[in-house]
Computed example of a mutant assay.
Amino acid sequence: MKQINLMVLFLLCISTTTIFAQKNKKMDIIAYYTGDAKLIDEYEVNKLNQIIFSFCHLKDGKLSVDSSKDSLTIKHLVSLKAKNPQLKIVLSLGGWGGCEPCSAAFSTAAGRLTFAKSVKEVSDYFEVDGLDLDWEYPAIEGLPGHLYQAVDKPNFTELLKTLRSTLGKKYELSFAAGGFQKYLDESIDWKAITPLVNRINIMSYDLVNGYSTVTGHHTPLYSTNASEESTNRAVEFLLKQGVPAEKLIIGGAFYTRTWINVEDVNNGLYQPGKHVEGVNFKDYAKTYTEANGWKYFWDDKAKAPYWYNAKSKTFATSDDIKSIKAKTEYVKAKKLGGIMFWELTLDTPKDGMVNAIYEVKSAK
Rank of each mutant, 00 (worst) to 15 (best):
A109W: 00
A110Q: 13
A110L: 12
A110K: 14
G111Q: 09
G111A: 05
R112S: 01
T114W: 03
F115Q: 08
A116G: 01
A116P: 03
K117G: 00
K117N: 14
S118T: 02
S118E: 02
S118V: 02
K120H: 12
K120F: 13
K120E: 14
K120T: 00
K120V: 00
V122T: 14
V122W: 04
V122Q: 11
S123M: 14
S123T: 12
D124A: 15
D124E: 15
D124K: 15
F126N: 05
F126M: 06
E127C: 09
E127N: 13
E127D: 15
E127R: 11
E127L: 10
D129W: 09
G130P: 06
L131D: 01
L131T: 03
D132V: 11
D132Q: 12
D132K: 07
D132R: 08
L133W: 12
L133C: 03
L133G: 05
L133M: 11
W135E: 02
E136T: 09
E136I: 00
Y137Q: 04
Y137E: 01
Y137C: 10
P138W: 06
A139P: 10
I140S: 00
I140H: 01
L143Q: 13
P144S: 12
H146M: 11
Y148N: 13
Y148R: 08
Y148E: 07
Q149R: 12
Q149C: 04
A150R: 09
V151D: 15
V151A: 15
D152I: 05
D152C: 11
P154V: 03
N155T: 02
N155D: 14
F156W: 03
E158Y: 01
E158R: 12
E158S: 14
